[in-house]
């Protein structure tokens, strides 16, 4: 991503953002409210197109002022996003949610197209097992499951598209400690499979637990691009709020 700008009316939300992400890498995206995190991700997922600058993905031009980007196009490139509000249909069961909008079909008597429940459940179970996600029953409405289980089902749906890049927006914000640990475990598993991951979170302990790099946005610019194991929470916080970062040996 090179030198990306995005403005809405008079407000310039992104002012020259550049960064790179490699496959199998977890990038933590942090920043205060209004720093431009959501806008940046929506440029990648095709909700918006860039005003200037270029976004490249997998050696191909994803978005530029001349290349309009759309959500369907993003999906075609292998980019998936799990939204903070989960976007689950909570009265429907687990399998229906994982295959929402893409239910497998078989033909009754060779002509009548009907949803193939069996195939749907077998494939749903396969995806969940692979991720080490335990769900008590595939046939219960997801509203009956815990917040952590719901989050992993939302991730499982995104994974059923075989993405190369997965963007997770505050996946742990509403979860208990134990459930958070489970979601982080799933993220580690995905990284091992070579999927690039962007993790947006306000919870710095989570960011430090799973990311390889941390990108700090502040007022529409990259305030810092840090390697997780070489930095500290204090330094990240300092970049987020815009204070002079702490150096070894005290305040610089």
């Amino acid at each position: 991503m090179k030198d990306v700008y995005k403005r809405f009316g008079a407000v310039e939300v992104l002012r020259g953002v550049s960064f790179a992400l490699n496959g199998g890498e977890v990038l933590g995206l942090v920043g205060d409210n209004g720093a431009g995190k959501s806008t940046l991700m929506k440029l990648i997922t095709g909700v918006y197109s860039v005003d200037s600058g270029e976004i490249w993905f997998d050696g191909r031009l994803l978005s530029s002022p001349r290349q309009t980007h759309t959500p369907a196009r993003a999906r075609g490139f292998g980019i998936e996003m799990v939204y903070q509000d989960l976007a689950l249909a909570k009265q429907q069961d687990v399998a229906a949610n994982i295959f929402l909008g893409r239910e497998p079909v078989r033909h009754l008597l060779g002509i009548l197209p009907i949803v193939d429940r069996r195939a749907m459940e077998i494939r749903a179970k396969f995806i969940l097992d692979e991720l080490g996600i335990k769900v008590p029953q595939l046939r219960v409405p997801v509203a009956w499951l815990s917040g952590g289980q719901q989050q992993t089902i939302a991730i499982a749906r995104a994974l059923s598209f075989n993405p190369k890049l997965l963007i997770l927006d505050e996946p742990t914000a509403a979860l208990a400690v134990k459930e958070t640990e489970h979601v982080l475990e799933v993220i580690r598993e995905l990284r091992n499979r070579g999927i690039g991951i962007v993790l947006i979170s306000h919870r710095l302990p989570d960011i430090f637990a799973v990311t390889d790099r941390i990108l700090v946005l502040r007022q529409g610019k990259v305030a810092a691009d840090l390697v997780t194991k070489d930095t500290s929470m204090a330094e990240v916080v300092a970049h987020i709020v815009g204070a002079e970062p702490l150096r070894k040996g005290g305040l610089a």
Binding site: A72, Y83, D85, L86, A87, L88, A89, K90, Q91, Q92, A96, L100, G101, R102, E103, V105, P113, I114, V115, R157
Partner: peptide, 21 residues
């Protein structure tokens, strides 16, 4: 049918139905 599944999804969470296409 998929028509039925999509109807349930739409009534359950319109945003979700839209996001999945």
């Amino acid at each position: 049918t998929r028509f039925g599944y999509h109807t349930l999804a739409l009534g359950d969470n319109e945003t979700a139905a839209r996001v999945v296409g």
